[in-house]
Amino acid sequence: MKKEVLDGVLCEVNNCVYWEKGNRCSADEILVVSQQGHKASNVEETDCQTFERA
């Protein structure tokens, strides 16, 4: 069964259960959080909480 992918959402973490060919994401939704509370100054201060190891 082919999974639906999120338009415009790319993911290079190919050991995630939601990773699909072409670096696409098949999660129903994604959650990105800041490591620094409610604000982030750069990409390194954020994490994808949707990740699940395949």
Rank of each mutant, 00 (worst) to 15 (best):
K2M: 13
N14G: 02
C25F: 12
C48S: 03
I30Y: 07
C16R: 00
Q35T: 15
L6R: 04
T50C: 08
K21I: 08
C11D: 02
V5L: 07
E52M: 14
N15F: 11
A54E: 09
E12A: 03
K3S: 12
D28S: 10
E45G: 10
K21Q: 04
V5W: 03
C48E: 08
F51Y: 11
L31K: 02
R24G: 08
V32C: 08
S41D: 10
V5K: 01
C11E: 03
T46A: 05
N42T: 14
T50H: 02
W19F: 13
K39G: 09
E29G: 00
D47K: 14
R53W: 13
N14W: 07
E12C: 04
T46W: 02
L10T: 12
N15G: 10
Q49V: 00
C11P: 05
Q36P: 06
T50Y: 01
S34M: 10
A54L: 13
V13R: 11
N42H: 11
A40N: 04
S41V: 13
K21S: 05
G8F: 07
G22H: 10
E45N: 09
K3M: 10
V9Y: 06
W19L: 03
E20S: 04
L10W: 09
K39V: 15
V33Y: 07
W19M: 02
N23A: 03
K39Y: 09
R24M: 08
V32G: 03
A54S: 13
S41H: 11
L10K: 08
E52W: 11
V43L: 13
